[in-house]
Design a protein around this nucleic acid. Structure first.
Length: 507
RNA sequence: GGCGCGUUGGUCAAGGGGUUAAGACGCCUCCCUUUCACGGAGGAAUCACGGGUUCGAUUCCCGUACGUGCUACCA
């Protein structure tokens, strides 16, 4: 399917809800793949058994499907690079670690958590509050660099827990080119000997990402900019494995920031400010706590994708509303911003509003039905589609639809009679009673209805304008909704009469 | 603390040595509409600071400030 073998991947950890920043990373991967006729791979990074959350993997697939960002290759649609779950690739990493060990680019470390802790507290000073396991300290720790070969072998064979660390060289500058940021350099003296293989035999991200990107022939690797500081580790690994010519082109994406203040947007911010952060509802299996998602909040997937695309990227034209297909044609990494973007929920809702206006009413009816059911309204699908067509221009979220259209399905519970009560009189009561009788002989279409209404008003010497608002309140309950005679046409003569009758009895 | 990365209106942002510094969201005013909304027309509001380079810097360079990220056997 690919003409130039572009392969990109998204590699989430199945640990919980899918953050909108994660979805944007997926989106940029997906768009880049589409643009370059490449392949989008989903790989599950489940190397941390302690953080594994049941259901999270399933959830990620569901979110991507909802967004329309279904991977070309994944554990559900295997290509030639299976398995796609890192926990199932455990043996593979072990082999590559051996290579590093043999070449002296990695070493065994037997330090216990307590010893590491001691090292950190002992070396901690005001100038260096976070001592690292690096060239300066590794000579004082319990590892295969300080132990003899025999001791090391005995320890390993004897089952002593160990990790494998990369041996970061001294006095080198590691440089690479980031597609978005240009050349980036790091002094190796400032990077620590990261753990590559954990005590449980699982690789850390650092090892797994390099090995898998190589094995899965990834050509372009996109991730959040929080990964920038550890990039030199990855570059070193690519070099030590002798794969540098196959190394993917890197692009570190800007962060999505919280709307107020600064910092990365977190789920907490959404809760605090009243907007979703996850793509879809996420229920924590342990606590049972549900975190609301964009979908359940009333967003259309195409709107969600559209707003995410414009967060950190722009086409350089004035167009802002795009379909996923259009985005796939014009997306380019070169136009991705360097700086983080604050998330603006108001604008997000505007995008959704725009897409709701463009969406097909039948489809909207299907998607909006759950929101009606939640409000105990169970409309017929075809009928609902018509109603939505009449009110959709006044909602930003699908979840707002029921409140905007409830009166189409049932008489309003409460009427805002105060809106016209002070100007009410017997004559107007007489008008409505007369009009109800005339209704039977009037065609059920808004033009005929309005004409009869206007004519009667003239006959009785009342300004039509003084009767319009009362009629609206009687039918709708409040000062909102589509043109009032469209509503009469929609709900029919009987319902109209009943509502007028009821309102009159309240006056 | 160290290191990395960043900085155009309140927000998203275009632009890039000489411009009236686009556009969008939001906000305000008016028009349309005998409701609300949509739509239309306007308006307020921006190049973090200091040095250079230059005839000329928002744009290039260097600092400073500020912000943010990382500094785990988490990703």
């Amino acid at each position: 399917m690919s003409s130039n073998n572009v392969r990109v991947r998204f590699a989430p950890s199945p640990t919980g809800g899918l953050h909108l920043g994660g979805v944007r990373t997926v989106l940029f991967n997906y768009l880049f793949a589409r643009k370059n006729n490449g392949t989008f791979v989903l790989r599950i990074e489940d190397t941390d058994q302690g953080r594994y959350v049941p259901g999270a993997e399933e959830y990620i697939f569901d979110c991507l499907d909802w967004c329309g960002l279904t991977p070309d290759e994944s554990l559900r649609k295997e290509g030639e690079y299976a398995p796609y779950r890192q926990s199932e690739r455990k043996a593979i990493y072990k082999d590559y670690v051996e290579r590093l060990l043999e070449q002296g680019h990695a070493y065994y470390a037997f330090d216990t958590p307590e010893e590491l802790e001691k090292m950190r507290t002992d070396l901690k000073t005001p100038e260096n509050p976070n001592p690292q396991y690096d060239a300066k300290v590794r000579g004082h720790m319990r590892n295969s660099l300080t132990l003899s070969e025999e001791e090391t072998r005995a320890l390993v064979l004897g089952g002593t827990p160990y990790v494998v660390r990369i041996k970061v060289p001294e006095n080198e500058t590691v440089t690479f080119t980031d597609i978005i940021r240009g050349e980036i350099s790091n002094d190796t003296n400032l990077v620590d000997d990261k753990v590559l293989l954990k005590g449980d035999g699982m690789p850390t991200y650092h090892l797994a990402v390099v090995v898998d990107d190589y094995l899965m022939k990834i050509t372009h690797a996109f991730r959040g900019e929080e990964w920038l500081p550890s990039a030199p580790i990855h570059i070193l690994l690519w070099r030590y494995f002798g794969w540098e010519k196959d190394m993917p082109k890197w692009a570190h994406l800007p962060l999505i920031l919280k709307p107020d203040g600064n910092g990365k947007l977190s789920k907490r911010d959404g809760d605090r400010l009243g907007f979703p952060v996850f793509a879809m509802d996420w229920k924590d299996p342990k606590s049972g706590e549900v975190t609301v998602g964009f979908r359940e909040h009333g967003f259309l997937p195409e709107a969600f994708v559209n707003l995410l695309a414009l967060l950190g990227w722009n086409p350089g034209t004035e167009q802002e509303i795009f379909s996923l297909e259009e985005l796939g044609e014009i997306f380019s990494l070169e136009r991705v911003h360097k700086g983080g973007a604050k998330f603006d929920y108001e604008k997000a809702k505007w995008f959704n509003h725009q897409h709701i206006q463009r969406a097909d009413n039948d489809r909207l009816a299907t998607l909006a039905l759950p929101f009606y059911q939640k409000e105990n309204i169970n409309p017929d699908k075809a009928h609902l589609a018509k109603v939505i067509g009449m009110v959709k221009e006044r909602v930003h979220l699908l979840s707002e639809l029921p409140a905007q259209s409830r009166f189409f399905f049932e008489a309003p519970q409460t009427l805002d009679l105060d809106a016209f009560k002070s100007k009410w009189n017997e004559q107007k009561t007489a008008f409505f009673q007369t009009w109800m009788t005339q209704l039977d002989n009037t065609d059920l279409n808004h033009e005929a209805l309005e004409l009869s209404f206007g004519n009667l008003a003239t006959e009785m010497g009342i300004k039509k304008g003084e009767l319009m608002l009362p009629l609206r309140i009687m039918l709708v309950g409040g000062k909102f909704g589509p043109h009032v005679f469209d509503i009469v046409e929609m709900i029919g003569k009987e319902a109209t009469k009943e509502r007028i009758q009821f309102a009159l009895s309240q006056l």
